[in-house]
Write a protein that binds this DNA or RNA. Structure first.
Lengths: 353, 353
DNA sequence: CTGAAAGCGCTTACAG
DNA sequence: CTGAAAGCGCTTACAG
């Protein structure tokens, strides 16, 4: 019944009374500060445990001017990221790391245009000690966030011009691996597809694609990257145009699995066979990519590492604001599946990073 | 440049100085309390806006002993729910409603066994004014939560024995609709499948199944509900046993889409054809259920309504703790797809609720 | 080793 | 209509 005896204790005063000492001593004991006799300290801890007492955060926040809370900001919106299993995994890792560090996580659904000119409410109210930026924030959003005057971390995104810590996946190398795999399967004409609006990650992947094309001595003309569509429908139309061209691609690399799954489903409805008529690869190892028929070749991103290390970087920044800027890259692993192999049993290739 | 001029204002004192008045007047103006001259009030608001000032939450919390923050608790774990698009949608709706009401959302990754005997940290610290319970909490967890002494709401779950407000989907009627649809397709032998551990929702759906079987005058022996498996693998084994029996089911209703998708994928790998050899229906309208081949018949849950109304109920409870207990049921809609119809173009049936 | 006192930023009776 | 003062629960120099 520990922690349940009677009503919850409201304040340090009551503990002090029960322990027959001053509130200063209770505070010191609980924070392991100052010189306190073993005996008194033990008694205080025992009483607190018995009554399930934890210092009121408002009082502590006010005095210490820190909240032990981290704010989470999304781009383009919380809604968009919640729908995505990929980000959900990152958020899960963030949550676990912060929980372990005794920090709470505060959500904000506020969108960039809302804090373009004035920081989000939880920042103005001093409710958070630092902010995690999750999603494909454009540079000016990151610059706006810098004016918060709070420690920041960009998770799964990066902007070379800013002074913000970041952690990203090495998409450059991963797409190189994807191209190599496709070449090994006999492909010579590839297309890389990314939305026009996509930021850092898409650019890295595109660069990996282009460099790999060059490395393998493939024709630049027959192996192009396309960034001139804004949504899935336009992407589909683009692929259809490409397939109808004189020298159509034999495989398509989509910037992520959401797009890859969409293309697969739609192309199949149009009578196309994957991988026979067209190879298809994605990125993220979204759960979806496994359940399609055939399963889709993809790249496994270490979402746990992104969330966990990202959180640690932020906490270090909070502890030491003058610390040197940190930008981490995490390796990713190609997962070859039937959408490019045509084999019944998926063949897993280790990345060469 | 509003809200950006110079460093952020730290306190009400500075505003008072700028406005040439006392902090009491600033506070009253900002909270629209007491009698204040139009002129002074306007000046104060203008200055606050100019400097992007919002009252420090710690000071306000301490004084008012309320936090304008709601805590979110998951079952079985935050990890489990984050992976599920269905819960993500509910969380999105919760977030939006609370944002609109100027409440923040605090996450906790803490699991039930951690707050079995002592409330989660954010409760002990008085960081939240109320708690949302999201997921399939067992009754004793809800009872433990009742000891927090805080307003609670169960979203997508219900426990008849408790005094906790709740909002759930009418799964009873929805499964009745599913059975009706299957009967219309000519099925006479159905199986309903739910995990052994599942709580309220599964029981409601099971009851809907059993009542529908009776309503349609189907053989109880050939139309059974199964609750004797704990994971997807055991469920698959069960279905295989059923299919090998003397009078095998011609269609299976899975308690949710996660299970339905799993069964579809695995059964197809074993050479079975859906819906030719076996009809298959799920629940939740998970995005997955649309991308499988064939798409899976399911039930669309109004996740937005669950999250939004659930939040509103909680806020009303906070405003009036003595309010009568509220338990809401939301209608759900059957979505017939090829996994039970065999048609190329999915046929959408309206529910009869 | 322990405690009295100040003060973090706010709101709210109360006095004027 | 406005302001001085108390006090929410804590931590932290400082005195003893």
């Amino acid at each position: 019944m520990s922690g349940k005896s009677g009503r919850r204790i409201a304040s340090i005063k009551e503990i002090a009374k029960l322990a027959n000492c001053s509130i200063a001593t209770v505070s010191n004991a609980l924070n392991n500060k100052g010189r306190i006799s073993e005996e008194v300290s033990k008694k205080i801890h025992r009483i607190c445990r018995k009554h399930g007492y934890t210092p009121n955060s408002a009082g502590r926040m006010l005095r210490r001017s820190q909240s032990e809370t981290i704010g989470l900001l999304y781009y383009p919106s919380c809604a968009a990221l919640f729908r995505n299993a990929y980000y959900a995994q990152i958020m899960e890792a963030i949550e676990m790391s912060l929980e372990a560090a005794s920090y709470d996580v505060l959500f904000s659904g506020s969108k960039f245009h809302e804090w373009k000119h004035t920081p989000p409410r939880f920042v103005r109210q001093n409710k958070v000690d630092g902010v995690i930026l999750l999603g494909d924030f454009p540079k000016k959003a990151v610059m706006a966030a810098e004016t918060f005057g709070l420690p920041l971390i960009l998770i799964d995104n990066h902007h070379p011009g800013t002074r913000v810590d970041s952690i990203t996946t090495n998409g450059y190398q991963a797409i190189k691996d994807t191209v190599q795999h496709l070449v090994e399967q006999g492909h010579e004409r590839l297309a890389f597809l990314a939305y026009a609006g996509d930021g850092y990650n898409a650019s890295q992947r595109q660069k990996g694609f282009e460099d790999a094309v060059q490395d393998h001595g493939l024709s630049a003309k027959d192996n192009q990257a396309y960034r001139d569509f804004v949504d899935d429908e336009e992407a589909l139309a683009l692929v259809q145009r490409l397939l109808a061209s004189r020298r159509p691609p034999t495989a398509v690399i989509a910037v992520n699995d959401t797009l890859a799954v969409y293309l697969l489903t739609k192309l199949q409805n149009l009578g196309l066979e994957v991988p026979k008529d067209l190879g298809l690869a994605g990125f993220d190892n979204d759960p979806f990519s496994r359940t399609t028929h055939p399963p889709i070749t993809t790249v496994r991103v270490d979402t746990k590492e992104l969330g966990q290390s990202g959180t640690e970087i932020l906490l270090k920044r909070i502890a030491d604001p003058d610390r040197a800027q940190v930008n981490v890259q995490v390796a990713a692993e190609l997962i070859a599946r039937e959408s490019t192999t045509g084999l019944e049993v998926p063949q897993v290739l280790e990345s060469v990073v």
